[in-house]
Amino acid sequence: MNIRHAKTFLLGALALGFLVSVAASHFNSYWLFITYDIAINVILAVSLNLINGYTGQFSLGHAGFMAVGAYTAAVITNQFGDLNPFAAGAVFSGALLAGGALAAGAGLLVGIPTLRLRGDYLAIVTLGFGEIIRVIFQNMQGVGGARGLSVAHGWTDFFWAFGAAAAAVYVVAALVHSTYGRGFLAVRDDEVAASAMGINPVRYKVTAFVVGAFFAGVAGGLYAHSKQFITPGGFNFMQSVSIVVMVILGGMGNTVGVILAAVLLTLLPEFLRPIAEYRMILYSLLLVVLMLARPQGLFTFRKQGDAK
């Protein structure tokens, strides 16, 4: 991605999202909702890619951050969404940001104690964190407990979904493609050498966790206002795994590849829908085959990770 035109890209994406959302009534609503899923998965995958791909951590708790954002945003819009019909956009954006902020706070909480851990250990701790979040919501009767929570407003549309996706892509790409951002890759490549060059690995890891969690929270808010019904079970371990799969399949630390993988893996189950009961088996088989055939990621073509 040519980062020099990044701001233009961001504005272009927002404008396109707006135009499509204006014309949304002319589109098949089934496919429209799938495009929201695509945007949400792009946000999740791109943000996890900052943690797992660029910084070389292994987080398995992204669904937990997503849950924090989803519940926070849903509770806010359920509470304040009807106050003033003209302020809907403001309430929604506030709710999404609050969801992101709370998720980022959770990211900070998980990030700090887990920084001494590496690889498998970090994966286990973040997995545990995700499950704890899920269990907490399951037992919170105020938000419906295990029965789930209805979300009054279906505010997620093309503009919000793709605007947020463009923002997530921009933030991750802009961070990584700077002298400052080379530090994420340095920490991943060789932590000892990185610290010998004056890079504070703790700082970079926490930043990756916080930024990643923020966008997972925003994605959760969008998800809640697209489905209009959320249950703790929707943010389980499998959801975290499916985001990890997008990152691995796209090629760790390859933003464009990860975006393509998120699109592909959102669409694949839809195309497999006609063969209903064999769908998940085929999906899993396809994943296994893809991993074996292209362990470096489907969309990684250069041998060197991320050169410039």
């Binding site: 002298t179 080379r182 890759l185 991943r188 000892v192 050498a193 890079i199 050169a307 410039k308």
Partner: peptide, 14 residues
């Protein structure tokens, strides 16, 4: 212990 995923330039820039 160079940064293996990076270019020559980026190693120094970091």
């Amino acid at each position: 212990r160079l940064f293996a995923s990076m270019t020559v330039f980026d190693n120094v820039r970091t």
